Amino acid sequence: MGSEHVGLVDPLGEPYERSQRRKAELMKLYGRTWTIAEGIGGGWYAVWRADISAYGLEHGLSNIRCGATLAELARHLDTETRLENQPWRRVPLRAAP
């Protein structure tokens, strides 16, 4: 069971089983918020599961994050999580009377 992938490597040379374990770890951490998948041409990407408000986009949140490796993608998702959890102050559009 699972032996069909023994010896296989991903495009960057990481053993298949190790990359699948890392993907499982990322899914555990970020899977409720992000859909994580392998890119067709290599690398990995994550897509935000819900729409991000224009206000969130203005403050640096992204709908899609990519990484050449799962470690790089994990760093990007960590940055997104920190941005999302940071308190934002709304600046009034016009001066108060």
Rank of each mutant, 00 (worst) to 15 (best):
6 V>I: 15
8 L>N: 13
9 V>R: 14
10 D>G: 06
10 D>T: 10
11 P>W: 00
14 E>R: 13
14 E>S: 13
15 P>L: 11
17 E>C: 09
18 R>I: 15
18 R>Q: 15
19 S>L: 09
21 R>A: 11
22 R>N: 07
24 A>T: 10
24 A>M: 05
24 A>Y: 00
25 E>T: 15
25 E>I: 06
25 E>C: 09
27 M>N: 08
28 K>H: 07
28 K>M: 12
28 K>A: 13
30 Y>C: 05
31 G>A: 10
36 I>K: 02
36 I>M: 03
37 A>F: 00
37 A>P: 00
38 E>R: 04
40 I>Q: 10
41 G>M: 11
43 G>N: 04
43 G>D: 04
45 Y>F: 03
45 Y>H: 07
45 Y>T: 08
46 A>G: 08
47 V>N: 10
47 V>M: 00
47 V>Y: 00
48 W>Y: 00
50 A>R: 10
51 D>N: 11
52 I>Q: 11
53 S>Y: 04
54 A>S: 02
55 Y>I: 15
57 L>R: 08
57 L>N: 08
58 E>R: 05
59 H>S: 02
59 H>E: 04
59 H>G: 11
60 G>Q: 12
61 L>M: 04
62 S>V: 13
62 S>L: 14
63 N>G: 02
64 I>L: 13
65 R>Y: 02
66 C>M: 09
67 G>C: 03
67 G>I: 02
67 G>W: 01
68 A>W: 05
70 L>F: 07
75 R>I: 10
75 R>M: 11
75 R>L: 10
78 D>K: 02
78 D>N: 07
